[in-house]
Write a protein that binds this DNA or RNA. Sequence first.
DNA 1: TGTACATCAGTGAACGCGCGTTCACTGATGTAC
DNA 2: TGTACATCAGTGAACGCGCGTTCACTGATGTAC
Lengths: 235, 235
Amino acid sequence: VPSAPRTARERGRAELTREILDIARRHLADQGAAALSLRAIARELGMVSSAVYRYVPSRDDLLTALIVEAYATVGQAAEDADDAAPQQDPLARYLAIAHATRDWAVAHPHEWALIFGSPVPGYRAPVDTIDPAARIPLRLLQILADSPRRRRRTRDLPESVAADLRSLAEQTGSPLDDELLLRAVAAWVQLVGLVSFELFGHLNNVIHSYREHFDAQIRGTAADLGLVPRPTRAT
Amino acid sequence: VPSAPRTARERGRAELTREILDIARRHLADQGAAALSLRAIARELGMVSSAVYRYVPSRDDLLTALIVEAYATVGQAAEDADDAAPQQDPLARYLAIAHATRDWAVAHPHEWALIFGSPVPGYRAPVDTIDPAARIPLRLLQILADSPRRRRRTRDLPESVAADLRSLAEQTGSPLDDELLLRAVAAWVQLVGLVSFELFGHLNNVIHSYREHFDAQIRGTAADLGLVPRPTRAT
DNA sequence: TGTACATCAGTGAACGCGCGTTCACTGATGTAC
DNA sequence: TGTACATCAGTGAACGCGCGTTCACTGATGTAC
């Protein structure tokens, strides 16, 4: 962990590094990941293309940084929305996370495609992306854990699936039973799937009120998960 | 509709056209859509690159053909599986379609990514892709329509969502009510979402028994949809 | 059946464009004595 | 405070690669009389 930059060199380096990331982020947002090019970034900086290599080891590393950043920002948006919701109202929290995620995606479609679309050809996600990618699903698990649970009939799951779910529970310290864990995974898949369907055009000509449809679907799942709204008291 | 080819020229043309599509399909399967190149195809054919333009108007048209083909083959696989299932058993039909879809995707990951991943940059899907893309979801609607329905409490949906669903019912001639239509859309999103999560690596380190997990999730949704297994009679 | 003409497949060259990455270098900035 | 040396940012040229698409052309195949 380096301390605050001192020398002019260090300050310049920090600033240029930031600037490169800014430009890369903008190019990604405008054109998508495939169009991301170190030469284009250099051009915009008024530098020669090889100079960028003083700041970025390779195009793949830059892409990795953008992926991590995308996961981090959408995760942050979701967490902020969750924190701003009434903590005793699991339904409100669930809706807050879902809508914050969708709102971010609608505002940053190429970033969304980068992290949830088809993997970039020839690119393999490094370990750094695992933790930031887990932020939203972890919150979903927490909401379920914080929420009052009614007993439900548990199905018989194959041993292999139950093992995967037990291991998930251990890794996340979740108190949920297999049935709820399975539904939690489904909820996460649904959240991402709904947003991707919208952004990738798979609901063209079918759904027009995207936000309302999304809301209805998410509420349906919340009900299936047993998340109930806090009782409103009449005044 | 041209009749069966007669002249040597026509036969040659038909064969080469087929060959180009074969090679394109193979390149797509091996390397993904981004790596698809007319020059590479020409090279493999032992032709000069410009010759390919006698058979294919442009790279985008070739890509469109591959997209349509991918939708058609996965749709066909799903329909075949449905047709092979006992028609009076909606659960069996639902499972058959789901697994056929997943099996195809696992066998053709790049094709799957082409149709359900992020849209290819700079490419806009033409109208030709709409019909083939609708085959599987249409089957899902049919299964639900063919299946005995129990009354369920319908939620209050916003007018805009209800309108979208009514219009969907009209376009598909479906007798389902809003609640079931909404759940049918959710089921379709889930099916694609689960497969994409598996193929795109979003369940890495979480789920290992993909097939069993998929099966469990699909069965859960089938139960929520009210699809019941046909009662087995003891012999 | 034979000839004149039209069709069309495939060639070869070119246009114009882009990219990631390496490497020897100059000159400015920073550091140690 | 001043000098010698080390560090490092940015240059410019190059390597080696790829792509889609157009266009004038030759020569083979097909067709109409």
